[in-house]
Simulated assay, not measured.
Amino acid sequence: MALFKGLSLFQRLKHRSRALGRMGRALQLFVPMLVDVVRGRYRPVPWSAMAWMLLALVYLVSPLDLIPDFLMLIGLVDDVVVVGWLLTKVDRSLDPYRIWKEGEDIEQV
């Protein structure tokens, strides 16, 4: 029984590491995407990615939380979980831009 719990924990940690990777990719790719959209180089505008990012920013600065921040550690974990979930949504919304960007980088070489 303990082996299955350990395996389950390992699988959960592996899943979390993928989520962290998606969050990092979203943050690295969002600003270049925004620049390409403003300059008119990338169309169609990925409105869903912008909406998810806006929600993440609003949640971070909003005084309203699922768990209040005055509950020190738990309140901060709540922010990390919600914003992390929103950033994974941003990353998924940026998949078409990522494909376009990779094709553009190949053309420039």
Rank of each mutant, 00 (worst) to 15 (best):
M1Y: 06
M1P: 08
A2V: 00
F4P: 01
F4H: 12
S8D: 08
F10Y: 14
Q11I: 11
R12G: 10
L13D: 06
L13S: 08
H15N: 12
R16D: 05
R16G: 00
A19K: 13
L20N: 11
L20C: 05
R22F: 07
M23I: 05
L27D: 03
L27T: 00
L27W: 00
Q28V: 04
L29K: 12
F30Q: 05
F30G: 03
F30S: 05
P32K: 11
L34E: 04
L34C: 08
D36P: 06
D36G: 05
D36E: 12
V37N: 02
G40S: 15
G40Y: 14
Y42W: 15
Y42A: 15
P44S: 07
P44G: 04
V45L: 15
P46I: 01
S48D: 03
S48Q: 13
A51H: 02
W52E: 09
L55M: 06
A56W: 00
V61R: 05
L64T: 04
L66H: 07
L66P: 03
I67N: 09
D69E: 09
F70H: 13
L71H: 14
L73I: 11
I74H: 11
L76S: 12
L76T: 06
V77Y: 10
V83F: 02
V83N: 09
W85M: 13
L86D: 04
L87N: 00
T88F: 05
T88P: 01
K89A: 10
V90C: 06
V90D: 11
D91H: 13
D91A: 11
D91S: 11
R92N: 08
S93L: 04
L94N: 04
D95Q: 10
P96D: 03
R98M: 10
W100L: 08
K101G: 02
K101R: 15
E102S: 07
E102C: 04
D105V: 09
I106L: 09
E107Q: 14
V109D: 07
